[in-house]
Amino acid sequence: MNIWIEIAVSALLLLGCSFALIGAIGLYRLPDFFTRLHGPTKATTLGVGSLIVASMLFFAGSEHRLSLHELLLAIFLFITAPVSAHMLARAALQQKVRLVERTRGQPREE
């Protein structure tokens, strides 16, 4: 395989895994539910997205056939991540999970 493709795939893999790890670190160490929600919805989604691009590039480079179906996975993730985050946020608001005290603008009771 072309050395440049190898370097690009490696860089994307490392980047993707770092973002996935950062998402998990955010999930573990941030103080309350709503701040924790940010890590997985953004970092993990982008991390997996860049892993998928790396996979596409790898198979295009090693087998000389364009395989686009990984794109389907990326599109699916980018559509579903905000939906599940929104859903969980609504559930958490309804259940009145504990918030960090310094959270400003706490939502009114409906």
Binding site: L30, P31, D32, T35, L99, T103, R104, G105, Q106, P107
Partner: peptide
């Protein structure tokens, strides 16, 4: 962590 300013 304590420098975050979360808000709604």
């Amino acid at each position: 962590r304590d420098r975050l300013r979360p808000a709604f």
